[in-house]
Design a protein around this nucleic acid. Structure first.
Lengths: 120, 120
DNA sequence: ACCGGTTGTTCACGTGCTTTTTACGAGTGC
DNA sequence: GCACTCGTAAAAAGCACGTGAACAACCGGT
């Protein structure tokens, strides 16, 4: 039951993969360059995937201190993460906003890929 | 024998599911985006499912203050909830009107899916 | 120590969503 | 028919979120 190499400390979602031991992030097999804050935020989201996480909790987990009133850092870094994830894996939407509640990470398919010919 | 994760703080009705812990709403497994008021109204209805709830009580539960005379907010938000629920789960009718008394939530099957050819 | 590039923080503005309120028409029961 | 209740759309105001950019702090290499 220990045949796997480093599977135990690896978080996955869709074709996204994060090795906690060395902090390596793979998107469909390719390395994805993230900054420290981006990585810690992504890990916080992955460890609670499919659940809504309030900003206060995300900030505590990724920054290690309580969120101050009016601080928008989480929004800014969610945006940075989204940009990189969308560039690396355009077919997925990972981070979902729950208005008034917080964010949720789930590897859902982008409902793009509509037929653009018969637009409105 | 209590291996389940967070089943205890989850309200269900038909294929509808509300996790009280994080406020996530699932309709047939898919996340359903609700606003804060919509969620609190839905929870109030679910906690008294199959019973008729007067507007005054629904307002107190979802808004946290007494209903003022002439306020139609409950009706407006019941309509918003109905719209979203019907979009997500067309085969069910959840919120039922009891004229002069209030609303009741029960996951009944829509007797739609009639043959539309022989309409009245 | 200097320089260039990267990262983290904060601010500002626009946009869209939420909530409240009003209005009017349709439905219901007497 | 009449009075009341409910469904629904929409205007108006407020607020949360998305986003770009400026600035400072940090870091490695020379």
């Amino acid at each position: 039951m220990e045949a796997a190499s480093h599977e135990e400390d690896t978080l996955r979602a869709g074709e996204l993969e994060v090795r906690l031991s060395d902090g390596l992030v793979l998107a469909a097999g390719r390395p994805l360059a993230l900054s420290l804050r981006e990585l810690r935020l992504l890990i916080a989201l992955l460890e609670r995937r499919d659940r809504i996480i309030p900003r206060e909790e995300l900030y505590r987990l990724a920054w290690g201190r309580p969120l101050r009133n009016g601080d928008r850092s989480v929004d800014v870094y969610v945006h940075k993460l989204r940009t990189k994830l969308e560039t690396a894996l355009p077919q997925r939407r990972f981070i979902h906003t729950h208005f008034g509640f917080g964010y949720r990470l789930s590897p859902e398919l982008s409902h793009a890929f509509h037929n653009p010919a018969t637009g409105p």
